[in-house]
Design a protein around this nucleic acid. Structure first.
Length: 119
DNA sequence: ATGATGACAAGTT
DNA sequence: TAACTTGCCATCA
């Protein structure tokens, strides 16, 4: 409507990222690039991380986003510093059966969940 | 308005 | 082999 409103895709993208993130099965993890690629923005993996940081301020209470299941392509908990506590991510992962050692996901390649493949 | 930064990734040197 | 450079798009100073 009105003239130039329509918030540019930022919100749309964020919503898509959150949607996919919620689909990540418990005990599984995925990478920013995988989500980005699934959304057609393989080169915007950074935006995925940006969207995740928003996940905390999002309607997470109604639709919690398992941001702890999203790590970088190396399986490192790169975003743990953005969590309420620096260990929250690791704790959450461990609680779901995902082994985390030294801030890194064990058997990342095995626990890796690709929306384009498993979905 | 410009510049720098960022929960990344892939390609190049 | 590791380190450097570029792409992407939004937010912050």
């Amino acid at each position: 409507m009105s003239t130039a409103t329509a918030r540019p895709g930022s919100q749309d993208f964020e919503r898509d990222v959150h949607s996919v993130a919620r689909l990540i099965p418990s005990g599984r993890v995925t990478s920013y690039g995988a989500i980005a690629k699934y959304l057609g923005a393989a080169k915007s993996s950074r935006m995925v991380g940006w969207a995740m940081s928003r996940a905390f301020s999002s309607c997470a209470e109604e639709s919690p986003v398992p941001a702890h299941r999203v790590v970088n392509r190396l399986g490192m908990l790169s975003g743990r510093m953005h969590f309420p506590t620096p260990t929250a991510m690791e704790e959450q992962l461990m609680a779901e059966g995902t082994e985390v050692l030294n801030g890194q996901v064990v058997d990342f390649d095995v626990r890796f969940w690709d929306p384009s493949t498993d979905l």
